[in-house]
Computed example of a mutant assay.
Amino acid sequence: MDNSWMRQNEVDISRYLPKFLLKDKRISCVLAADSAEHELQRLSLQDLQAQFYLSTATWGLSLWEEFVGLPIDRISDYKTRRTRVYSKINGNVIVTPDFLRQLINRYVADKTGQLTEHNEQYYFDVVLPDGKVLSFDELEAALRLYTPAHLGWKYIAQTNAAGGFYVGGIISCAWQITIPADTTYNLEIAGAGEPVIVGCVSSGTETYIPADLFK
């Protein structure tokens, strides 16, 4: 929608008149009132033009819904209602993977939904970003309307997370020191060595106490 043909700036009639006239309070008040009314008309015309385009229609969505044969929905948000009308308008298109992918993304807030085909098994995966689906019920209804009867589908919720993995550890080091014996060392004893008696003697007393069998 392009309304460049219409005035874009706020209406101010006084800019077309000599400035000295604004010194008169009566003239100044009349110009301000006329400018405000012209501004309302300008905004009303822009709003009216927006209703002629489905992508910008708001209060005119009820007319679009009536035009394509949908029940008038005054509860859902504008984006959901526009998507429903788009789906109805495109009812005669050829269903291709690209069309289904676009259809899926009409119900995804950030348009990142994906479609993965499994032609040999006659089904496809509907990969949806977690938390970004506008309406599962609307998406389900749209897929049932446009998906060929011989195909099925499976929903896959996908969550993307950004982060890193850090792995750390402690390495302990040890040094092995070997001190070799000095085999060149000689121990000389002058004269005959005296014998050294080393021993350990333990002593004890054995006490025998007979049992008194008749007591």
Rank of each mutant, 00 (worst) to 15 (best):
Asp2His: 03
Trp5Ala: 00
Met6Gly: 11
Arg7Ala: 11
Arg7Ser: 11
Ser14Arg: 13
Tyr16Phe: 14
Tyr16Asp: 05
Phe20Tyr: 12
Phe20Ile: 11
Leu22Gln: 04
Lys23Met: 07
Asp24Phe: 10
Lys25Gln: 10
Lys25Cys: 07
Cys29Thr: 08
Asp34Trp: 12
Asp34Pro: 08
Glu37Ser: 11
Glu37Lys: 09
His38Arg: 15
Glu39Gln: 13
Arg42Gly: 09
Ser44Ala: 15
Gln46Leu: 08
Gln46Asn: 11
Leu48Ala: 15
Gln51Trp: 15
Phe52Trp: 07
Leu54His: 08
Leu54Lys: 05
Ser55Gly: 11
Ser62Cys: 06
Glu66Met: 09
Val68Gln: 04
Leu70Cys: 13
Pro71Ile: 04
Ile72Gln: 02
Ile72Leu: 00
Arg74Met: 09
Thr80Ser: 09
Arg81Met: 01
Arg82Glu: 03
Arg82Asn: 05
Tyr86Asn: 10
Tyr86Ile: 08
Tyr86Met: 06
Gly91Tyr: 12
Asn92Trp: 14
Val93Ala: 09
Val95His: 02
Thr96Gly: 15
Leu100Ile: 12
Arg101Glu: 03
Asn105Cys: 01
Asn105Pro: 03
Arg106Gly: 10
Val108His: 01
Asp110Ser: 07
Asp110Met: 05
Lys111Trp: 01
Thr112Ala: 01
Leu115Met: 06
Glu117Arg: 07
Glu120Arg: 13
Tyr122Glu: 05
Tyr122Gln: 09
Phe124Ala: 10
Asp125Ser: 01
Asp125Arg: 03
Asp130Trp: 00
Gly131Phe: 04
Val133Arg: 01
Leu134Phe: 02
Leu134Arg: 03
Leu134Thr: 01
Ser135Glu: 01
Leu139Thr: 01
Leu139Phe: 00
Glu140Ile: 00
Glu140Ala: 03
Ala141Asp: 08
Ala142Gly: 01
Arg144Phe: 15
Tyr146Met: 03
Ala149Arg: 04
Trp153Pro: 06
Ala162Glu: 14
Gly168Asn: 09
Gly168Phe: 13
Gly169Arg: 06
Ile171Tyr: 05
Ile171Trp: 04
Ala174Val: 07
Ala174Glu: 15
Pro180Cys: 04
Pro180Glu: 11
Asp182Leu: 02
Thr184His: 15
Leu187Pro: 05
Gly191Ser: 10
Glu194Ala: 12
Glu194Leu: 12
Glu194Ile: 10
Ile197Gly: 11
Cys200Arg: 11
Ser203Thr: 14
Ala211Thr: 09
Asp212Phe: 11
Leu213His: 07
Leu213Pro: 09
Phe214Gln: 06
Phe214Gly: 08
Phe214Thr: 04
Phe214Glu: 10
